[in-house]
């Protein structure tokens, strides 16, 4: 049997897979030892084995190493957490500058055009809460109790008052009697004194009703006995503090003027009545 390079090339697989007979194997080994080309070919194939063993040891070392998250995962997670924290901080920090009006009221969300850009309910609540938590420092503190309005608008009733017990009164309650309505104020003690003197003089007349109305819910001044009423946002027949109006039994205005300046003419008219 002639073993040459062509034969070796053809039976190389059998050589490595123990597919040759003992005689073929000896002849093949003899040729390979003497042939540089065939020896290089076989050495190249054999040289793969230590590479594979080294590669396997490397792979096994990686598999047996304590598990650590990949550097890219660690960095990525750290960046993601930082970004999330910054986003939350920016989100929760109110954008209202000092001196600016408070945050937008929630009622604006009902506008359809704005509903697209409107933040979710949770965000709106947060903004609202922040506006409440940090009120405008320049604004005066609001009173705990809301006083009744003293300035009546054009649609307000002519005369609507309440007594100290809270019962309301209108002009209908005085119809059939002569009514003297005076408006007093703490700042005008002379008008209060005039009302008191009129009440002391004509208070016993059952056909006359005399009341003093105040635009502010304050206590009656001391040493006075005339009945007082509080205005409930009515126009009060156009009266201002310190003025009076005299109504006849039908509710028509007979006289109006100042409690101080027109005191004598009023007293005269009441006496002549």
């Amino acid at each position: 049997m002639n073993v040459d390079c062509q034969w070796i090339s053809k039976n190389l697989e059998a050589l490595f897979c123990d597919g040759l007979t003992d005689e073929q194997h000896q002849l093949a080994r003899a040729h390979i030892e003497n042939c540089q080309t065939c020896r290089s070919e076989v050495q190249a194939l054999i040289a793969v084995d230590p590479l594979i063993k080294n590669y396997f040891r490397q792979q096994l070392a990686i598999a047996q190493a304590p598990r650590r998250p990949r550097r890219s995962v660690v960095y990525g997670s750290a960046v993601a957490v930082t970004a999330a924290v910054l986003l939350i901080l920016v989100w929760r920090t109110p954008s209202v500058k000092p001196g600016m009006p408070p945050a937008v009221a929630p009622q604006t969300q009902s506008v359809p055009a704005a509903s697209v850009e409107a933040p979710p309910p949770v965000k709106t609540d947060e903004v609202t809460n922040i506006a409440r938590a940090k009120p405008e420092p320049s604004q005066p503190p609001k009173p705990d109790r809301i006083e009744p309005a003293v300035v009546a608008d054009v649609n307000a009733p002519d005369f609507l008052v309440t007594d100290p017990a809270g019962y309301s009164r209108t002009l209908e309650d005085y119809r059939g009697r002569v009514a003297l309505i005076g408006v007093w104020s703490k700042d005008q003690p002379q008008s209060v004194a005039s009302l008191e003197r009129l009440y002391e003089t004509f208070g016993s007349d059952t056909r006359l009703r005399l009341v003093g109305v105040s635009n502010e819910r304050v206590q009656k001044p001391g040493n006075t006995s005339f009945p007082i009423l509080y205005n409930q946002g009515s126009r009060l027949l156009g009266l201002k503090p310190g003025e009076f109006v005299l109504l006849d039994e039908a509710g028509s205005v007979k006289l109006r003027g100042s409690l101080v300046k027109d005191f004598e003419s009023l007293s005269k008219l009441l006496r002549e009545r």
Binding site: L12, E13, F16, C17, L45, A47, V48, D49
Partner: peptide, 16 residues
């Protein structure tokens, strides 16, 4: 087993 040997040989050859 023969298939194993054959595949190992061809794997060596491809890698080489």
């Amino acid at each position: 087993e023969g298939t194993v040997k054959s595949r190992i040989f061809y794997a060596r050859k491809r890698l080489k």
